[in-house]
Amino acid sequence: MAFRPSEKRKQTNYIIDLNLSPFLSLFVALIPLLLLTAIFQQVGIVNLYLPTAEDAIAEDAAQGLDSDFTLAVTITPAELSLRKDDQILFKDSTVEGMDLDGLTSQLVELKKKSPEKKDIVLLLDGSILYQTIINVMDSVREHNGSELFPDISLADRIVETS
């Protein structure tokens, strides 16, 4: 009686197939998780500066020093100007697109003269939009990574009545 054909012969063209389905399950779980937690728009903050009682004392101590002056940037729809006490250092009256670079270069000069000075006041007109305020704050705060005047206070513009 002849034998049954050997089972081994069938294994000649044997394809190795990696079973990747566990990886697939892992990725299917991981990808939605990471997509949900992914932050595509980074949120940062801009700090506002409110003068405190201690600052008033420090201001008294600073009297007579280089940093004893008030810096104010006035922003209205028609004007962007920089004042050091009563003296106008920079004025730009272009209606469309404010010359923020010009303002920054003036502030860089000022910072070189008095490196101790940190505070600045923005005097704003009521109609100025939030984005414009932030733009001005950006150009006042720093320039090319070096700090200019980071202690920024916001104030209402004093309407000059003649």
């Binding site: 109609s127 939009l129 939030y130 916001l154």
Partner: peptide
């Protein structure tokens, strides 16, 4: 968290 088109006269009241 303020909208970018909010005018200063409203912003200052909130602050």
């Amino acid at each position: 968290e303020g909208d970018r088109e909010v005018p200063f006269r409203l912003l200052k009241k909130i602050l």
